[in-house]
Write a protein that binds this DNA or RNA. Sequence first.
DNA 1: CGATTTAGCTGAAACGATTCAGTGCGGTCG
DNA 2: CGACCGCACTGAATCGTTTCAGCTAAATCG
Lengths: 365, 365
Amino acid sequence: MKVNTDPPKRRATLKDIATELGVATATVSNAYNRPDQLSPALRERIFEVAARLGYAGPDPMARGLRRGQSGAIGIVHRERLSYAFSDPAASLFLQGIAREVEAGGQGLLLVSRPPGQEPELAAINSAAVDGFVVHCLTADDPLLQAVLRRQLPTVLVDQPGFDDLPYVMIDDSGGARAAAQHVLDLGHRRLGVLAFRLTPDATAGIADRQRQEATTNVVALARLRGYDAALRAVGLDWHEHVTVYECLEHTPAAGRLAAAALLAAHPRPTALLAMSDQLALGVLEYAAQAGLAVPAQLSVVGFDDTPAAALASPALTTVYQPHVDKGRWAGRLLLARLRGEPSPGAVSLPTRLVVRESTAAVPGV
Amino acid sequence: MKVNTDPPKRRATLKDIATELGVATATVSNAYNRPDQLSPALRERIFEVAARLGYAGPDPMARGLRRGQSGAIGIVHRERLSYAFSDPAASLFLQGIAREVEAGGQGLLLVSRPPGQEPELAAINSAAVDGFVVHCLTADDPLLQAVLRRQLPTVLVDQPGFDDLPYVMIDDSGGARAAAQHVLDLGHRRLGVLAFRLTPDATAGIADRQRQEATTNVVALARLRGYDAALRAVGLDWHEHVTVYECLEHTPAAGRLAAAALLAAHPRPTALLAMSDQLALGVLEYAAQAGLAVPAQLSVVGFDDTPAAALASPALTTVYQPHVDKGRWAGRLLLARLRGEPSPGAVSLPTRLVVRESTAAVPGV
DNA sequence: CGATTTAGCTGAAACGATTCAGTGCGGTCG
DNA sequence: CGACCGCACTGAATCGTTTCAGCTAAATCG
C-alpha cells in the first residue's frame, strides 16, 4: 500500500482537504467526528481526498487542546521508568491498570523521571494526560505535589487520603502482623526486618529507634506497626527483639546486603521479615551463599507473593497482596472520575499470609 | 501545602498571569521557556503569581500543538495492553526501551487496542507522540499501516525493513536452527513445532503444508526456515519429520493445548520445539500432568530464555535472545531519528542456544 | 556627543482542530 | 399555499501556547 508522497514539505491538515474539495473545514471535521452531520457521499469524498493527501486524521494535539482531553492516563511513581517492567510487583499492578484502561481505549503514559534537578516538574507538567495514578510513599513527596498542581483527576496508590483524593490501599499492617505472628508462633524471638526507605533522604543501614520514629513512608510505617502489634500481642518489646535495616533499593541485591548486616549481629536473628519478596529473595541468596540453611537455621518471610516467591527454593513464605486488583481498582477509580461517574472514594484490599517452606520452628524449641 | 482554590471555575492560563501582572503573554511564556529573555526579578514575580493562581505551567497540549512535539514516544503492538506487563519477553523488551527513553525525559505511551471495529485507527491516530516503536509481525498488518499513515519517525521490531524504516531484529533463523540441530544431534527424528500464528487470520491447530506455505508472519517464517535448515543439514525432509501446531495465544495454556494435540499423533514426536518459552512451559505442564517424563520421554526446547525458563523444572533448554538490548536499540534508533542524529538503519542481534535439562537423547539411541 | 548595541519587553500571527449559531433550501403538513 | 421543519453545510470564534519581528530606553563605543 502506497501511502502518498506528493507533498513532501508539510503535512496535510483539515484545511488542505477542505480547500481541495471546496468545503468548510467544519465539514471535514464533522466527517471524522460526527458522521451524521453530513451526507455519506461527501464524507466518502473527504476520506478519499484525505487518503490521497496522506492525511491520517485530526492531529491529536490540536484536538486535545480544543477538546480539553488527551485520551491517555498518566502513571507516576518514584522509581526509574524501567522499574515498571523490571519489578514484578510493579508489573502486576500496572497490568491491572492496563486491563481497565484498555477497555476504554485510553492509552497509558508512563511518565519518566529524568535525573535532572527538578525531575518531577519537567515530566509531570508536560505530560499530556487526562488524569494521574500516583504511586508514591510520602505525602510531602515533590512528585505528588507536582501532580496535585496539575489539578487533574488523580488516584493515589498505597497512600491514604490526601486532599480528599480517592485512593487504593492494601491492609499493610494486617499483613505485616500476620507475618510477624507466624514467626513468633514458631518460637522466634530475635527478629530482623528488611524495610523500605523510611524517609526520602534515607541511607542504607540499620535504623535505630530515632530513625524508626522519623518514618514518613506510610507503607513502611504501617508495616512496622503491624509487626509491632504482633510482638505486643505476645508481650514482647519491639526495640528489644527486633532490628530494622533500611534498604534503598527494591532488589535482591539490596536484600543480600541487608541480610549480611542483620545476620552479623549478636545474638543473630533467627527470623528475617522482608517488606518485599525481592528483598526476601536476596536474603535467600545470601543465606545459600553463607551456608545458612533456610528454614532450619533461619526463617524468612517476604511480602507481595510475586510469582518468583513460589518458585524460589525454598519456596518463600510471604504475605500475599492483590497487585492486579489494586491496579484494576486504581484504573476504575480514575476512569470513573474522568467520566463523572460515582465511585468509592477509597478502596482497601486484604492481604493474606502464605506459608511455604522458608519458615520453620526456631532450632531447639 | 495549599494549592489554591480561588478560581474554582476555569484553570489559570498564561494570559491570566499576564493580565494580572500587566505584561505580555509572550513574557510569561519566556519566563518558563527562555529565562534569559527577561529580568530575574520579573521572572520571580511571574512564578509567584503563577503559584498563587494555581498555574502548573504551560498546558502540554497547547505547547505540543505549537511546538509540534509531545515529549512521548508511542509503543504499538498486536496484543492487549496488559500484555506489556504480563508477558515476560515483552516486559524485558519494554524495559530496554524504557532505559533509553527515560534518560531523555520522554514519556512512554502504551497505545491500547480497544476491542472495536477498527481498533488501530482510533488509538493510533489519536496518540500524542513524537514517534513510534512498532512490534508487529506482518508487513500488511493494519496496525502498521495506521502507524505509517501518521508519518512519524518509526522503528520496527522483529520485522525487517519496510518503507525503508529502521528496524531491530534478532537472528531468528539462526536460533531456531541451533535449537533443531540440538535435538537432531540427540537423535530425535520425530519433531513437533509449537508455532505462533502464521497469518493474522489463524485458527489454532495443526498447520498442514499449505498453511505453512501461506505464512506471512515474518518471525514464524524465519524460525520455521531455521528449523528446516537444521533438518536439511542432516538430509531429512521437513514434512516427513515435523508437525507444526499453530498457537493463537502466547501463553502456557496455549502451549498445553498444542502439546496435547502434537503428542496425540502416531508415531509420537520425541522432541517439541516451541517458538516461545511461554509455550514451552505449557508443554512442561502438560507433560507433567500426562505423566510424560521430561527429558527422558520427551525433549522440549523453548525460545526467548525468559527468567522462568531457568527456574522451571526441569530447567528449560531454550534459545536466548537479548530482549533488553533489543529494546534499547529500538529506543536508541528512535531517539536518534527524533534528534536528527545519524544512526544505523538496521540492527540485528544474535541468539544463542542455552542447553539445560529439558532435552536428552532419544530413548534407545 | 551622536551612533550603535543591547536588554527587556510587546503585539500579533500562527499551530490544527472543534463547536455553535446560523443559512439556504427542498419537502411536508394542515 | 404559506408556515414550518430538518438536512447539509458554512463562518468565525476559540482552545493555550510559542515565536518572531519589532520597539524603547538605557548602556556602550569611538
